[in-house]
């Protein structure tokens, strides 16, 4: 089978604490994978290392046979990886629409030189992006908030906005860190619906989530990790009944 994203023996230490301990896994294109485990298991560290926010001590990750480790975070993002953060990150003092527009990749208007010498191209691209951003906001149901400051949105709406940013980035791989945490039950349904849509479009999605009741059946595969290691993986039903998982959660 075509292994699209492979991670091999990734390790990361924080002052003696092994956040990642030779963690290996792989992902196929188009699957939705749940990454679960107790707090401090190293799930968010894994995202940070994969996204280039942290440098791994050892090990490697490859996307489509291209090396991901030890290249700058912004270049990793431009290779088609988008992520959300557990502690919501948004640019709060600009409008909802601008947050989405910020997320488009390869904008010629973001380059100082082309800003000066290719002004008309920048203008057309900017107005195209404006329309695209509105479409995306409509898709997540935030079109009426487009002009508001991102800060004024409710928590659930902010989560939807980060999802909109991921959509705008047109990334193939989405790393979502607790997309459901702190979201009201009615909003959870909306978020899950958007996830299913994205899956149908062929995106690969890796989700860290604690609210397993809500999301478990949407996973194609689940990886259970603890103390920086992969304990087991399999179909959601297998994981539900795995004694090691039950033990870890009861402990």
């Amino acid at each position: 089978m075509n292994k699209w994203l492979t991670v091999e023996k990734l390790s990361k230490n924080f002052g003696g604490v092994k956040a990642l301990d030779e963690f290996s896994c792989h992902f196929e294109q188009g699957e939705v994978v749940g990454l679960i485990g107790p707090n401090g298991a190293g799930k968010t560290t894994f995202f940070n290392v994969l996204g280039g926010m942290l440098e791994a001590d050892s090990g490697s990750a490859q996307l489509n046979k291209k090396k991901l480790t030890s290249i700058p975070a912004h270049r990793i993002a431009n290779m088609g990886i988008a992520r959300t953060f557990q502690k919501l990150r948004l640019i709060r003092q600009v409008s909802v629409l601008e947050n989405v527009m910020l997320s488009f990749r390869n904008q010629s208007g973001e380059n100082l030189v082309s800003l000066v010498i290719r002004w008309s191209k920048v203008r057309t691209q900017e107005s195209e992006n404006y329309d695209k951003a509105l479409t995306i906001l409509k898709r997540v149901g935030l079109q009426e908030k487009a002009g508001d400051l991102a800060d004024t949105l409710s928590y659930g709406q902010q989560k939807l906005l980060t999802l909109a940013c991921c959509i705008a980035s047109d990334a193939d791989l989405l790393l979502l860190d607790e997309p459901l945490a702190g979201v009201s039950p009615s909003m959870i349904e909306i978020v899950l619906e958007k996830l299913r849509e994205l899956k149908n479009e062929g995106k690969t999605i890796v989700v860290i989530e604690h609210n397993l009741e809500a999301i478990m059946d949407d996973f194609d595969r689940v990886i259970f990790m603890d103390s920086g290691r992969k304990i087991c993986e399999g179909k959601p039903d297998e994981i539900r009944n795995d004694p090691r998982v039950i033990e870890a959660y009861l402990k």
């Binding site: 996204g51 280039g52 926010m53 975070a73 912004h74 993002a77 988008a82 992520r83 953060f85 990150r89 948004l90 640019i91 709060r92 003092q93 600009v94 601008e98 527009m101 910020l102 997320s103 904008q107 208007g109 973001e110 380059n111 100082l112 800003l115 920048v122 900017e126 940013c165 980035s169």
Partner: peptide, 19 residues
């Protein structure tokens, strides 16, 4: 768009990197 990125950097560098 360039200026938009500048403001994003002021508000949240990590987020700007992740974009």
């Amino acid at each position: 768009p360039y200026g938009r990125v500048l403001q994003a950097i002021r508000e949240d560098e990590t987020f700007a990197l992740s974009l």
